[in-house]
Computed example of a mutant assay.
Amino acid sequence: MISRRDLTYGLAGLAAAGALPRGGAAAAEAVTAVDSHAHVFRRGLPLADARRYAPDYDATPEDYLAVLDANGMSQGVLVQPSFLGTDNGYMLEALKRHPGRFRGIAVVRPEISRDELQALAAAGVVGIRLNLVGAPDPAFSAGPWPGFLKNLADLGWQVEVQAEARRWPVLLDPLLQAGVTVVADHFGKPDPKLGVDDPGFRHLLAAGAGGRVRVKLSGSYRNGDGLPAAAIPLLRRHLGLERLVWGSDWPHTQFETATDYRRVRAELDTWLPDPAERRIVLSDAPRALFWPMRG
């Protein structure tokens, strides 16, 4: 369910800026500003057996499109929520209905066939997500992981990882060796007590020099106060702005009353006050990552 606060504040801000976009196929094809991390779901969908949380409200694709339009965003990336497990059906329906507006990141089992992956790719999926919070490290060297990762690399897909930063030394190297691009959710999730001094976050920075690591500037409220101000200068120095993308984390699950879309979007203006730099993070970098065939 769309937040009245999200919609009202977003419309007011755009009215002042004269930037409210119009819908339609032509507008959808122009990638001008991408929200790289959002979730859609509704009540009544089958839930995963293993889950930490499930919301009691709807966040439909149409709700999300209204928020995107109200905040001047041309496209969004739908990330399969972990509480829906590997049933990507609701997200796939959204991709089918709005192919010019959305790309998808799916959750799948490593046993999935190459043909099934190719069908997901045809629907607009461009990568898979590993949400490892509360889960063990995958045994990437054991079957079926090597074949699975090869299929992902052959498709040119990304592997999006949500995990505590302390785990990056174990997780990151085998994924990069498999030839996939790795996208770190929510600033790489350093320990709030350690911040940018978390050794795992430092490992992520060092690996970023190789060119196949991306970091989402998202979920600042999940990482403790003050992290972005300290992390972004380091991320831009080690990875470059062209490997950073912004995400709203809409509808801010478990933090619905603590923030809203207007507020998280405004954070980026504070972090990167130069419009040319923001354009790299909002348009150039996500267009290359999520719409690589569209120029």
Score class of each variant (00 low, 15 high):
Gly44Tyr: 08
Gly85Ser: 05
Ala27Tyr: 10
Asp63Lys: 00
Ala33Phe: 12
His39Pro: 01
Asp63Trp: 00
Arg43Met: 12
Leu78Gly: 04
Arg51Ala: 01
Asp69Glu: 14
Gly44Ala: 12
Val31Met: 12
Arg51Cys: 01
Phe41Gly: 01
Thr86Asp: 13
Gly76Leu: 04
Ala70Leu: 07
Leu65Met: 11
Gly72Glu: 10
Arg42Asp: 04
Ser74Lys: 08
Arg51Thr: 04
Ser36Lys: 11
Asn71Tyr: 11
Gln80Phe: 06
Leu68Gly: 12
Ser36Val: 12
Gln75Glu: 11
Ala54Cys: 08
Val79Arg: 01
Pro46Val: 11
Ala28Lys: 06
Asp63Met: 02
Ala38Gln: 15
Arg43Gln: 15
Asp87Cys: 01
Ala26Arg: 15
Gly76Lys: 03
Gly44Phe: 02
His39Ser: 08
Ala50Glu: 14
Tyr64Ser: 03
Pro55Phe: 07
Ala38Thr: 15
Phe41Ile: 01
Leu84Phe: 02
Arg51Gly: 06
Ala28Cys: 10
Ser74Trp: 07
Asp58Gly: 03
Gly76Trp: 08
Gly76Arg: 00
Val67Cys: 09
Phe83Tyr: 10
Leu47Val: 02
Val79Cys: 08
Ser82Arg: 06
Glu29Gln: 14
Ala30Pro: 13
Asp35Leu: 10
Val79Phe: 09
Ser82Val: 06
Thr32Trp: 14
Glu62Asp: 15
Gln80Pro: 03
Val79Thr: 12
Thr32Asn: 09
Val79Met: 08
Met73Thr: 09
Gly76Phe: 03
Ala50Met: 06
Pro61Arg: 03
His37Cys: 09
Ala33Val: 10
Leu45Val: 05
Ala26Gln: 15
Tyr64Phe: 14
Ser74His: 04
Val79Ile: 14
Val31Thr: 15
Leu65Val: 09
Arg42Cys: 13
Asp49Trp: 02
Ala30Lys: 15
Gly44Asp: 10
Arg52Asn: 11
Asn88Met: 02
Leu65Tyr: 00
Thr60Leu: 08
Arg52Thr: 09
Asp87Lys: 00
Val40Ser: 12
Arg43Lys: 12
Asp58Met: 06
Asp87Gly: 00
Val40Leu: 07
Ala30Asn: 12
Asp56Lys: 02
Pro81Asn: 05
Glu62Gly: 02
Ala48Trp: 09
Leu45Lys: 06
Thr60Tyr: 01
Leu78Cys: 07
Gly72Pro: 11
Gly44Leu: 03
Tyr64Asn: 07
Asn71His: 15
Asn71Leu: 15
Ala30Gly: 07
Asp58Thr: 00
Phe41Leu: 03
Val67Tyr: 03
Tyr57Pro: 00
Thr60His: 03
Glu62Arg: 05
Arg51Trp: 04
Val31His: 11
Ala38Tyr: 04
Leu78His: 00
Val67Leu: 10
Tyr64Arg: 03
Glu29His: 12
Ala26His: 11
Val34Glu: 10
Val77Asn: 03
Val40Cys: 08
Asp69Asn: 09
Pro81Val: 02
Asn71Phe: 07
Ala59Gln: 00
Leu45Pro: 02
Tyr64Leu: 14
Leu65Pro: 03
Gln75Asp: 11
Ala28Phe: 04
Asp69Tyr: 06
Leu68Cys: 13
Ser74Gln: 09
Gln80Tyr: 04
Pro55Ser: 09
Val34Lys: 12
Asp69Ala: 15
Arg52Ile: 05
